[in-house]
Every structure is written in structure tokens, then in C-alpha cells.
């Protein structure tokens, strides 16, 4: 192998070795590479001087700009908050019906609430607010606690059966599990309740009468004399045709046998009062739309 071979094609020198047929040219490093190295290093250097960059043993270089990503976002969030305050202050100061009369605010509400509802509520109540087994529909007028804005706001703030000190508490007793009612008794009262909302039952009039008696003794304290529910207790109306859990035999038997205690989270920590008000307004609109 000669010391200075040349590549016939380019005329460049090779390094002089050959490995299993492979040779290397000794081409110099193209100038563009040096430029790229220079530029990227200078840029990095400048960046290091300006920004937090190099660790020392117990601290690090903070950079001339004093930039701190956490403070920056705190600041940005605070600024955004102040900007929001320019229009959302009334949301926490005025009652709902007055807010409704300010079209600008309602425009903001309509722009904001759907995404909020999607991120925080749709998991349970569905994207349209129609609910599902175990999660009440929010667009019918069968309210557990009430559909006026104040009540909804309170529900959102404290939740229902939630780990919040002021949470609303609503409990459907486990009549079977607690040995208050026997299985035939439960079946009878279930038949009776079904008949209240005009559901088909195959029960005989005697059974229905028994159910009525059981109902009067055990259930009216919560669901009311007329079984139309008591809002202070969050006990639902049993005469309408909407159900949280279901009106079929099996589901209703389970409801009375094992009891129910729906859990609606408290949003006091997660959402601001203004956000809760937007959701409330949005919900009322959804319900009104569904009504039509």
C-alpha cells in the first residue's frame, strides 16, 4: 500500500489504509461545518449566560435574565386572570338571572362552558348532559336538589356524598341488607313504585296494596307522601319516568335491597366560583334546550 494514494474520481488523497476493500479520503472538513459549529456554540454560550444553566455544587448559575419557568407561568396565569376579571367579575357578584341579561357575558359563557363541561362533567353526565345509569340527567326537569342557579352552584361547590366537609348527603337506605325488609316485601314495594310512574307490572292488586303500605311506612319520610321526592334530602321523585339507576325490576330491587349513595365530586378546589357559575348557566340552557 503506498502512502499517498489518490482517489481517481475526486483526486482527493486517501489516508492510506484499506480495510477489506474500504478506503477513506482525507478530505478536509467542509467549511460549512465549521460555521455551523461556530454559530451553534456561540448561541449556546449566549444562552448559558442569560439563562439558568450550569450547576455548581450547592447552587447553579441563574443567568442574567433571572428567568425561572415557574415564576414565568405564575405571572402569565396571574395576567390571564386579570384579563378574565375584566369580564367575569359579574359572574361572582350578580345573581344568575341578572347575568343572563348581559349578552357580552353570556357570549363568554357560551364560548367557555362547553369545554369545561367536557373536561369535568361529561365523564359522568355525558357530553350532552343526558346522564347514564347512576348519573342523573341534567337536562330533564327531574332535579334531586333543585334546578335553580343557587342550588346548582351549591351542589357544584360541595358535591354530593363527597369528601367535602359540607357535602350534601343523600342516602338511599339498604332496606334488604339492613334486614328492614324481606325479599318479598322489597319485591312488593318495587312493584308499587313501578306502578306510580305507570310502568307495566304483573303484580296483583293485593301485592300493590302491600307495597303501598310498605312504602307509606318506610319510604315517605324521604320520598314524600306523594312519592314526588323531597329536595332537601336529595331524594328523587319516584312518580316521573326518569331514573338515575333504572326502573326495571332488577335494578330497582338492587336499589332498595342494597341502597344507593351517588357520589358527585365537590368542585370547590378544582374550579373557581366564576367557572362554576358558567357551568350552572350552561346547564340551565342545556336543560331548557332539551325541553323544547
Amino acid at each position: 500500500m503506498s502512502v499517498k494514494e489518490r482517489d481517481p474520481l475526486t483526486g482527493h488523497e486517501t489516508t492510506g489504509h484499506e480495510w477489506n476493500g474500504i478506503t477513506e479520503l482525507n478530505t478536509r472538513v467542509p467549511r460549512v461545518i465549521w460555521w455551523a459549529i461556530g454559530i451553534s456554540h456561540v448561541w449556546a454560550l449566549v444562552y448559558w449566560v442569560l439563562m439558568p444553566a450550569w450547576p455548581l455544587v450547592h447552587t447553579y448559575t441563574k443567568g442574567l435574565l433571572g428567568y425561572d419557568q415557574q415564576l414565568v407561568v405564575d405571572d402569565r396565569v396571574a395576567r390571564a386572570y386579570r384579563e378574565l376579571e375584566t369580564w367575569r367579575a359579574p359572574l361572582t357578584e350578580l345573581p344568575a338571572h341578572q347575568i343572563r341579561e348581559i349578552p357580552e357575558i353570556m357570549a363568554h359563557v357560551n364560548a367557555t362552558a362547553p369545554a369545561l363541561f367536557g373536561d369535568y362533567c361529561a365523564g359522568c353526565h355525558g357530553t350532552e348532559g343526558a346522564g347514564g345509569p347512576g348519573f342523573p340527567s341534567l337536562v330533564d326537569d327531574a332535579w334531586l336538589w333543585g334546578g335553580d342557579a343557587e342550588t346548582i352552584m351549591e351542589t357544584l361547590r360541595v358535591g354530593i356524598n363527597a369528601p367535602h366537609p359540607e357535602s350534601r348527603i343523600a342516602q338511599m337506605l339498604a332496606f334488604g341488607a339492613l334486614d328492614i325488609l324481606t325479599r318479598p316485601q322489597i319485591r312488593a314495594v318495587v312493584d308499587y313504585v313501578q306502578s306510580l310512574s305507570g310502568l307495566e307490572t304483573e303484580a296483583t292488586p293485593e301485592v300493590l296494596a302491600e307495597g303501598e303500605a310498605i312504602f307509606a311506612e318506610n319510604c315517605v319520610s324521604c320520598h314524600g307522601e306523594d312519592a314526588r321526592g323531597i329536595r332537601d334530602l336529595g331524594a328523587p321523585d319516584l312518580t316521573d319516568d326518569t331514573w338515575i339507576y333504572g326502573g326495571d325490576d332488577a335494578t330497582m330491587f338492587t336499589t332498595v335491597n342494597l341502597g344507593r349513595q351517588g357520589w358527585m365530586p365537590s368542585f370547590e378546589m378544582r374550579l373557581s366560583a366564576a367557572q362554576r357559575m358558567m357551568l350552572t348557566l350552561y346547564l340551565q340552557d342545556l336543560a331548557a334546550e332539551a325541553d323544547e
Partner: peptide
């Protein structure tokens, strides 16, 4: 605490439900 225990269970059992 964003959801109830019940929701978590049902979601894990069948998210699409």
C-alpha cells in the same frame, strides 16, 4: 377525587360505557 370511586371502577371495567 376528580371522580367517584364508583366512576373509576366502572370506567376501568368499560371505559366506552
Amino acid at each position: 377525587e376528580k371522580y367517584s370511586d364508583d366512576w373509576q371502577v366502572r370506567h376501568l371495567v368499560d371505559p366506552r360505557a
